[in-house]
Design a protein around this nucleic acid. Sequence first.
DNA 1: CGCCTGACTGATAACGTTATCACACAAATC
DNA 2: GATTTGTGTGATAACGTTATCAGTCAGGCG
Lengths: 365, 365
Amino acid sequence: MTNKRKTKSGKDSGRHPTILDIAERAGVAPMTVSRVVNENGYVSEAMREKVQRAVKELNYHPNGLARSLKRQRTHVVGILLPDIANPFSAQLISGIQEILQMRGYASFICTSERSLEREQAGLSALFDHRVDGVVIATRETPTGNEWLSRLVERQLPTVLVGREFPHPHVDRVTADHRKGGYEATRYLISTGHKRIGFVGVSRANGKGLRRFQGYLAALREHQLPVEEELIVGPDSTSGPGYSTQDDGYQGMKRLLNQRRPPTAVFARNDFTAIGAMCALHDAGLSVPDEVSVVGFDNVPLSAYTSPPLTTVDQPTVEQGRQAASLLLERIEGGQTRERKEINLSCHLIVRQSTGQRKAARRQTV
Amino acid sequence: MTNKRKTKSGKDSGRHPTILDIAERAGVAPMTVSRVVNENGYVSEAMREKVQRAVKELNYHPNGLARSLKRQRTHVVGILLPDIANPFSAQLISGIQEILQMRGYASFICTSERSLEREQAGLSALFDHRVDGVVIATRETPTGNEWLSRLVERQLPTVLVGREFPHPHVDRVTADHRKGGYEATRYLISTGHKRIGFVGVSRANGKGLRRFQGYLAALREHQLPVEEELIVGPDSTSGPGYSTQDDGYQGMKRLLNQRRPPTAVFARNDFTAIGAMCALHDAGLSVPDEVSVVGFDNVPLSAYTSPPLTTVDQPTVEQGRQAASLLLERIEGGQTRERKEINLSCHLIVRQSTGQRKAARRQTV
DNA sequence: CGCCTGACTGATAACGTTATCACACAAATC
DNA sequence: GATTTGTGTGATAACGTTATCAGTCAGGCG
């Protein structure tokens, strides 16, 4: 009784106290403690107070592992992303967590870092820890899809972001990149450009890139030739990944070295666009007077480049919100529901990196 | 026997198979399955094969919850970050995961999104799920520290990044921001600048910002006055947060509106610097001819701005690696070890946003 | 008075693993 | 032949919860 900080057991600050420790200290049954902690079932006021005091005194935190094991629900959802450095990822997470938090779910984020191996390891970790569902936003790959099948077969609620996988139990949220790419390209055409380059796509993954398809469609529709030499991207092996400032810079350099460089370029994303603008700057060419540049994604920074970047806005946070909502529907409502697909629209934001095509620059170089 | 896909039990693709299902199908005891799955203890070749076949056939994945509960180890570490949009966060994660992955640990990332409430919720979630340890990289706050105390008292292995908390069981990794700030400022002084602004610090949190202290120290050391009006930052209430492009833009505007604007500015971070450059550009001022700008962090993008940004490099990935290593030492070696503090050095990267101070611009407005 | 209902409490048995002990058998050792 | 050693296998009891069932005790009702 003389020592206030230590209990008689003497291991006060040692291992975690369990529900039994609380029960003992409060002089009640473990079940009663459980009821108080979870606020369900009948508990008399007197008991409740005794228990709550003990909880405070021992600084008790319920063991989530045991709870989840027993309840067969973790109240955790997994988020699988290609990469965390990307503002896209950040905004998506933000949207997802906004919804999850309201509904009492935590999230477990894994990144594939562009490696299939790590993607699988991540997915496996999520699965092993029995998350209640997953949001997957990595790029599509054959092996990835195979893995996905197995998860889905296990009835794991799944929502995909920006990726296709037709299965009655898998929802999908995406933005209409194709239309966005189309609009951007059409805008360049409408301002007089006829030679429009695309920076940031490699031969290998152009097929799966919807914004690129939009670019192609716009050219075709306006009877402009698709010239292979105007399409430049990272040199193969960088995997199913993104495209960065550096790819933009290198790509633009290559375009400028050609006999007839383009008067406008559509960059795969804003970072690629920034790299391209940097290359133009280094080459002494003015944006937009001599070359117009369009990006994609409308990252926060794009409004602050010089000149501010014309780009395509993609409602990323909203995609996150929608994905989370759909996932919770599946988790709490069961897998019986019809598959849903949400396609949000992108829209062009015209800033100052694009302009009317001027008289061709002196071809005499 | 006619139906190949469904087992006789008929609930093949239903709930998760357990170790008992495998044991039954392979005709062995659960314990033997456990031994095969975990590759420990003696198991004969024949048994091993039977079990492995059953594992494949039923697509068995051990339940991580049960395993962690029993083993009293989750092999998961928590990472608490202020924000995910930041390249700093991304690089830190990358470094942490590089090490963790090698050692067979997964990670659980939480973000505080600059809200104390969410920071605590995140920490709580990590704690409840009994992560084996945490890396904390959020900004220091009094309430945060109080929470931290409780975790540490519970013997949770903890490593802090860039944040102070003197406790014998808590390691710390950081970069020498103060020195970095000092070097950057000294460099500006050495190129002839005498009125050097600081963008991105609010009166409230300047105290805790080491790079800012470095700035102050350099001024003092060179007998330059610290002028309050040259120090601008986000207007208070934005919390214990960062500073963004927008703060940089607004801050720079305010500096330019003064009677005697600075000839050089040191921005709290690269994004702030980019915002500041944008404001200068809008005002028709040339960087670096009329105003020099220095950033901090050396984010990948900083090499691609126009002009490329002079900045201070902070070895972020390495901080992640070190933090992870220290944490694993604590997790696997116990809490007895001496507290370690690792202080990595920053260094100035001179690009093209800074230059010799030119003759004062025409004072005649 | 007997019976029911509602408020409250506790014992018991899971959830899916694995540590530990116990046993069985063969080969090697004394 | 008895003991040890090494290899292989299984039964049992946890890990920390909570769902479920089985009470107990008032008080209200017929």
